[in-house]
């Protein structure tokens, strides 16, 4: 009997070329295995023209290893890594839109903002936008606290993550180059 493996959250860090269609190529790998993507963000990395995807998925350790190899196999993907929660520093950002009049109901809102280490981004005539960075449960807590004042809008970004291991991506890429082999040799 196989022991049923436990599902955990994994953060994938994918380094890619900046190419049209790559997001699609990567996401269909999850779709095909009926895996849900919890979040996905992408931006240029520390290397020029090289993009970093941060993908969060919940799955088993053996499945994540296979999926990451499938991703790395895609042309346009330079290197793919995966990490468990303890191996990455990660954050999300959330924006909250609440009615301006809520500010004038005493000190409560100010307290809430301060206690949650959030900040006001803008004050308009009708609404205020508050920003908070943190982990999902923290941005959620602020959402719950603001609820009584009437949240007009709420949005949370995908996770961005920096892995703890000190080795640079570049060295991995160099290693791949070194391992590359030409059959004409």
């Amino acid at each position: 009997m196989e022991i049923k493996e436990e599902e955990k959250r994994f953060t994938l860090s994918l380094f890619t070329e900046n190419k049209i269609g790559l997001v699609n190529r990567i996401t269909i790998i999850f779709t095909r295995r009926k895996m849900n993507i919890l979040s996905l963000t992408t931006s240029e990395s520390e290397l020029k023209d090289i993009y970093r995807f941060t993908v969060v998925i919940k799955t088993t350790a053996s499945q994540v290893a296979k999926v990451v190899k499938q991703i790395e196999k895609q042309i346009g993907v330079l290197k793919a890594f995966y990490y468990e929660e303890e191996q990455v520093i990660f954050q999300e950002i959330a924006l909250y839109k609440i009615p301006t009049k809520a500010l004038f109901g005493g000190e409560t809102i100010e307290h809430i903002i301060r206690n949650h280490y959030a900040r006001i981004l803008t004050v308009e005539e009708e609404f205020v936008v508050i920003e908070k960075t943190g982990h999902e449960h923290e941005t959620q807590e602020l959402f719950e606290a603001l609820k009584p004042f009437g949240v007009l809008g709420f949005v949370r970004s995908g996770r961005v993550a920096i892995p703890k291991p000190m080795r640079k991506v570049m060295s991995y890429l160099q290693e791949l180059e070194d391992l590359a082999y030409s059959l004409d040799n």
Binding site: E46, L47, K48, D49, I50, M170, L173, Q174, E177
Partner: peptide, 10 residues
Amino acid sequence: TKPEMTTLLN
């Protein structure tokens, strides 16, 4: 400010 991978990887 960013290193260019292209030159690094020749």
